[in-house]
Design a protein around this nucleic acid. Structure first.
Lengths: 123, 123
DNA sequence: TGAATACTTGAACAATTGCTCAGATGTTAC
DNA sequence: GTAACATCTGAGCAATTGTTCAAGTATTCA
């Protein structure tokens, strides 16, 4: 990475030490930001987003119905679901030879819901 | 893409037409999902996430202070901010030779806030 | 048992991404 | 005007990503 941290990026202007320190130290550490980014990254793919909004709508669906709903191959759906499951965004249960997926928790549902609101209000 | 849409992915089981139709048609269209994914994708990078959480914290910051806060090159910050600005996630104003960035609206702030909560509650 | 179904896995490849570098803008001070 | 500063832009490149293909596991039914 090789980045100067001890010096100011702006030479003339003294950096706003209050704001810089607050933003850097008080709330979200780089490590937390990385974890948050990782989570957003998983939502940031059209296939995965469609899967998640399908689950938000239907509550619980098996892989083959999800494949129907999003119109991609079952293999692609399976890969996508594994990423989401590993990250704790969706959960699954087996029933016979089918596996049912659902959104993992209320936070995820709120996040998806709020994002949809945002999109719709900004035309 | 080359995907079968008229046939069932599951041969024995009749697809749950209610759930499939609801998930596919009622709320989020593929086009909407794509726009939502595009927005999440922009939040899904460590550098951009750090920038956004710095702005959530500080309210408004110039590029050089943001560069300080996230410890990457000013060029990288500039590229990142352009993507966020184009997508309507951040807004900017010029004051002298500096340009101040801020989160674009309350929805974005809520989204970042809620996501942080989610992260912290899931240990 | 053996065949069929529902889903998963790993490897491979094209497409996309984010960074760096070099040069261009717009702004202020002299 | 020139010089210095804050920021932006485009091209190029390494690294990552999402998909497909082929083969695998787990479950049901005859």
């Amino acid at each position: 990475m090789e980045v100067v941290t001890g010096l100011d990026a702006c030479a003339l202007k003294a950096p706003d030490e209050g704001k810089v320190a607050a933003a850097r130290d008080r709330l979200v550490t780089p490590a937390e930001a990385a974890r948050l980014a990782e989570m957003f990254r998983l939502l940031g793919d059209p296939t995965r987003a469609q899967l998640l909004y399908a689950l938000l709508e239907a509550g619980e669906m098996c892989v083959c119905d999800l494949t129907e709903a999003v119109s991609v191959s079952d293999t692609a759906v399976s890969h996508a679901l594994r990423l989401l499951r590993t990250a704790g965004i969706v959960a699954s249960r087996r029933s016979g030879r089918m596996i049912y997926y659902r959104l993992a928790d209320a936070h995820v549902r709120m996040l998806l819901d709020l994002s949809r609101e945002h999109l719709r209000e900004n035309d």
